[in-house]
């Protein structure tokens, strides 16, 4: 451990003791701010699973606030370890809620949704996280299918090993009309230049809709336009994409 890190560690501990004694929001905010870097690092680490980086940063930042609120400096665990665990927990939950749906075939999606509900009720009933075998029994699916659905639920990490862009795939599946039709490398390559031709706001709206699964009214609130307007822009952008992809595809395949 470097001197600097050690000093920081002592500072952190002192701040936590002060926070416990005074409940001063200024102290809390200083602790949160000091650890936002960790939130950003972790968000970046899990950014390639089909969820926008900015959303992950927000989930992770809130988790840092939660960590600061819940941390007990007397328990002998490093704050950063505790915070990392909390942030990963919240990111997992976030992915479970939305980051998974795109690639999985519908049957896996449905099982996954059901697993979410069953996991919650079984967890309450049992007072612990259910096993794969218990989930299989409760849903009537095989253990293998349960594992498959859980894997789909985590999305996947691209990082240095795999660098495909899930947002494009998502969109591709919508432009193609059904899930499989656009799911080839060739078609994804066609989509990127088509997407780049759209205005930044249109790109952003598509990203919010398909990358992030927001509703039209949510997008309206984010972008600051009416829901009707969002609806029109979405329809027009999709139509333009469809046209340029079809044209490019025709040229390519000649």
């Amino acid at each position: 451990m470097t001197d600097e890190a050690r000093v920081q560690g002592e500072d952190t501990k002192a701040l936590f003791l002060e926070l416990a004694a005074t409940r001063d929001t200024g102290v809390r905010d200083r602790l949160v701010t000091a650890h936002l870097g960790l939130a950003h690092q972790l968000a970046r680490r899990y950014a390639n699973r089909g969820e926008p980086y900015e959303d992950l940063v927000q989930v992770a930042s809130l988790a840092i606030v939660k960590s600061v609120d819940r941390f007990d400096p007397e328990r002998g665990v490093e704050f950063t370890t505790f915070a990392t665990r909390t942030v990963i927990g919240e990111l997992k939950r976030h992915f479970r809620d939305k980051g998974w749906a795109v690639r999985a075939p519908r049957r896996v999606q449905e099982l996954y949704l059901e697993l979410g509900k069953v996991t919650e009720s079984l967890s309450q009933e049992l007072g612990r996280s259910p096993t794969v075998a218990e989930l299989a029994t409760a849903t009537g699916a095989s253990e293998e299918a349960v594992l498959e659905a859980l894997e789909a639920g985590q999305g996947y990490r691209t990082s240095s090993i795999d660098a495909t862009d899930r947002n494009e795939e998502t969109l591709a599946s919508h432009i193609g009309g059904d899930d499989a039709s656009m799911d080839t490398v060739e078609d994804r390559e066609l989509l990127a230049p088509a997407l780049a031709k759209l205005a930044p706001r249109e790109q952003r709206i598509l990203q919010l809709r398909f990358g992030q699964g927001l509703t039209q009214s949510e997008i309206a609130a984010r972008v600051g336009i009416s829901q009707m307007h969002v609806s029109r822009l979405l329809a027009a952008s999709l139509e333009r994409l469809r046209r340029s992809v079809t044209e490019a595809g025709a040229v390519e395949r000649r």
Partner: peptide
């Protein structure tokens, strides 16, 4: 995940292990 599932790990543990 498969090995952990066999060993009766809870899904929360399995997710952690996988990550």
């Amino acid at each position: 995940a498969t090995v952990a599932g066999r060993a009766g790990f809870g899904v929360e543990d399995i997710e952690d292990l996988r990550l």
